[in-house]
Design a protein around this nucleic acid. Structure first.
Lengths: 185, 185
DNA sequence: GTCTATAACGAGATAGAC
DNA sequence: GTCTATCTCGTTATAGAC
């Protein structure tokens, strides 16, 4: 792993645990073991670094969702693989990068906003596709519009990550997911 | 409204829009029209101010939920009144104070954590009571454990506030709520 | 209770040598 | 590509006069 990737990995962890406004270049420098100016060489401004991270985060998400579509056959397995992604974030004692940046959105560089919009839109469109397929195959019987259920899934998983951090345990997250999926199978 | 309340009101709005790490005493001073040291007279440290706000926020929530229990007769009306509280937060272009502080939790004074825990516990217990009543009255037919649905409701509303800020419109929030309640009536 | 002045520190960022 | 040194600004907080 070269220096650029090392910086990105540590910065991402810091943002997902402390927020953009809760860490500094000095924190990265300490962990990576280089000086602050060296960081500026790789990422001139903090806004550059954050934008780079968010764009990459969405790309990874798209890759993951494409893989799930390919390898999971049933609708329920696809949805479980989707919730597992969030559960993995919880396991690493982080919240979602997109969720954290959304909370801080009004303090961030304007270039971040379209990236966030895209991040959530990718999930929404993927879920609509999965839920539509599941319905037409008879695997699901949904009440109401499919897009509404897509929104509910995204919102509940995002919220569950944040609340679990304060509610004190992963139990809150797991209950949330069980409550979400209990209607469908 | 005396000075202390003025400070609290403006600080609360700043935190709900920008986060604890996204505003400073200078921001409050500018809006209230006093000097920074005057703020420190009323709230010696930023941690004091944040703790005072969070405690008061939870008290207001409890008052509101007690009022809903008293004045709304059907389970569905109670749940609608609960979601309306979050919708009102969205209308004021804020996210939940508890949600914002939870996202930033690892950067905050330790005294905040029990306050956050309590904030979410109040909602969870209230929802469990409402959903249990609704089930025993035959107004709801819930699949799975009641506590799971309480967690799902809290998480989805919290997440919907944050995502709506980035998804670009209140539409995401409304779809989330419709998806949530569509199972139950 | 409010102010001016200032301390003490950390932030993001730059200059320029190696 | 990394460093030391430094700049400039904003932060929380305090001292002490009015």
């Amino acid at each position: 792993m070269d220096m650029k990737e090392k910086i990105l990995a540590i910065a991402q962890r810091l943002i997902q645990t402390r927020g953009v406004n809760g860490f500094s270049y000095a924190d990265i420098a300490r962990e990576v073991g280089v000086s602050k100016p060296s960081l500026h060489h790789h990422f001139p401004t903090k806004a550059d670094l954050v934008a780079r991270l968010m764009a990459h985060y969405t790309e990874q998400l798209e890759t993951y969702l494409a893989s799930v579509s390919e390898h999971q056959n049933t609708t329920i397995d696809k949805l479980k693989a989707y919730t597992a992604l969030y559960r993995h974030t919880l396991d690493s004692e982080r919240i979602c990068l997109g969720g954290m940046l959304s909370a801080e959105a009004l303090t961030l560089d304007a270039q971040i906003l379209p990236l966030l919009r895209r991040f959530f839109d990718v999930q929404r469109q993927w879920l609509i596709k999965v839920l539509t397929e599941g319905t037409s195959r008879g695997e699901l019987q949904l009440v109401g519009a499919i897009d509404q259920h897509a929104c509910t899934l995204i919102a509940a998983l995002q919220g569950a990550l944040v609340v679990s951090r304060s509610a004190g345990s992963v139990e809150f997250f797991d209950h949330t997911v069980d409550g979400l999926l209990s209607h469908w199978y």
